[in-house]
Design a protein around this nucleic acid. Structure first.
Ligand SMILES: NC(=O)c1ccc[n+]([C@@H]2O[C@H](COP(=O)([O-])OP(=O)(O)OC[C@H]3O[C@@H](n4cnc5c(N)ncnc54)[C@H](O)[C@@H]3O)[C@@H](O)[C@H]2O)c1
Ligand SMILES: NC(=O)c1ccc[n+]([C@@H]2O[C@H](COP(=O)([O-])OP(=O)(O)OC[C@H]3O[C@@H](n4cnc5c(N)ncnc54)[C@H](O)[C@@H]3O)[C@@H](O)[C@H]2O)c1
Lengths: 215, 215
DNA sequence: TCCTTTTTGTTATTTAATTCACATGTTTTT
DNA sequence: AAAAACATGTGAATTAAATAACAAAAAGGA
């Protein structure tokens, strides 16, 4: 039931690169070019394309224009991608005004918070009270939410979202929330990424992580 | 030269879970418990531990207290983890005041920006002009930075950081920056995560991604 | 026209990651 | 004290992912 995230992430990167190439006036691209730009091997690029039935021309590479269109269909960019943001604190507000979303066709329909002091129903992207979230989701048919509430509220909000038509959540709280077949949760844990980097650095400097290194 | 990120990320999660269990008064934990909490199989937990020489007791499971200590050594949490934040716009400022960092022993030493209007040298976590970054990094021996500048500045800042003692960067700009052996870059691309979720949802709803499905 | 070059698309191979399976040491029960 | 119940630790087996290899198609000369 689960389609490989890794392949899809690469498709998104290929498309991104091609979009930029198109902007520079390029018309065709080779698997080598995409491989270099994205940091993978050319054969992986071709295999990824092959999985999704994306084809090019023997020798002439791939037509950028055409490939972007076909990728967009595969990636669902021909539909409107509406999201809501739950928790409009520092992180939530940064996300609400993030210009990277409209740029790729993602529209923030509203923010939600429990603190009455920060509500703003009249703003272009309104901040509504959390009690209105269920009706809003149903009415606007929202399928994806970003969760930017404190750790302590995260699980209970997830539980209530499961009763709505929300099908996927990006979670910024540093808790591990389990996702299931029909309810996807993708957590972004900044502190964990940093700790990981520190580990890699320390290890690269000569620390011995594994016992068998000694043998 | 590259130690598997995936294993380390799981170690970080195991430690996190154990920290919480410890707070609840637990003394020992079984691979099954950690597996459930983190969402992996029990044998993977044991194998991960085995790789790093972490052992428990044949029946009694693992001593939480002791295992956290040993994990912290492996993960380098016995050293101070100082970082800087480059680009103090909406995202950068959210990160500067993020309480999740001190909670796990990460200290933000300073922020840097090119806009004179937002500098604040006197704050507890100062915001300094970008021109001072090289000296600061050298003097304070900073090894890790978070990059939260616009896409257009990201690559040139990376280039200049490579000439300092910075060894790892978390990048929030939606550009693919290539990391090398002695300079790690971990990109966090929120819009890409969202696009991926939309794809997964759409696919789960019955879209046919692969040509061979028809056969 | 035919030969050479180039680049795809796909099959085979290799490498990596995860799960299985079970012998082994520990505790609990009878 | 023996038997039963349990959970670890690790090699073997499996599954998944990435790379390598190459035949076949297209383009550009000679
Ligand atoms: N600030 C950062 O840079 C940063 C970085 C990474 C992760 N995070 C995570 O993102 C989340 C938010 O962080 P923040 O710094 O914006 O915190 P914040 O305290 O600034 O904002 C949290 C917001 O959530 C609201 N809230 C609390 N309970 C709620 C509920 N039940 N329903 C609706 N809204 C509710 C609060 O009113 C507040 O506005 C936290 O889980 C944090 O760990 C933050
Ligand atoms: N805002 C978000 O929620 C969000 C989410 C995901 C990713 N991002 C990414 O994070 C980055 C920052 O986003 P933002 O919303 O905070 O933008 P912003 O415009 O609010 O902040 C950017 C800051 O970088 C500073 N800056 C520009 N060039 C600089 C340079 N050469 N040296 C030092 N500082 C420089 C600017 O003065 C500004 O303060 C962008 O790449 C954006 O795509 C932002």
């Amino acid at each position: 039931m689960k389609t490989q995230s890794a392949v899809v992430e690469r498709l998104l990167k290929y498309r991104d690169v091609m979009q930029k190439m198109k902007g520079l006036g390029f018309v065709r691209v080779f698997s080598d070019n995409l491989a270099d730009a994205v940091g993978v091997s050319p054969s992986l690029v071709r295999k990824d394309f092959s999985i999704f039935g994306l084809t090019g021309n023997k020798r002439g590479g791939y037509q950028i224009e055409e490939l972007i269109v076909r990728l967009n269909v595969i990636l669902g960019k021909d539909r409107k991608q509406k999201i809501i943001i739950i928790g409009c604190g520092k992180m939530g507000r940064a996300l609400m005004s993030y210009n990277g979303f409209p740029r790729v066709g993602i529209r923030v329909a509203a923010g939600f918070d429990s603190d009455p002091a920060i509500l703003d129903e009249a703003a272009p992207i309104p901040i509504l009270h959390i009690s209105k979230i269920k009706d809003f989701i149903t009415e606007k048919e929202i399928q994806v939410a970003i969760l930017a509430v404190p750790e302590s509220s995260a699980q209970s909000i997830i539980d209530s979202l499961k009763k709505t038509c929300i099908k996927g959540v990006i979670n910024f709280a540093p808790v591990s929330l389990r996702s299931s077949d029909n309810f996807l949760i993708q957590s972004i844990n900044v502190e964990q990424e940093i700790e990981n980097i520190f580990y890699q650095i320390h290890f690269a400097e000569g620390a011995t992580p594994v016992a068998e290194d000694v043998l």
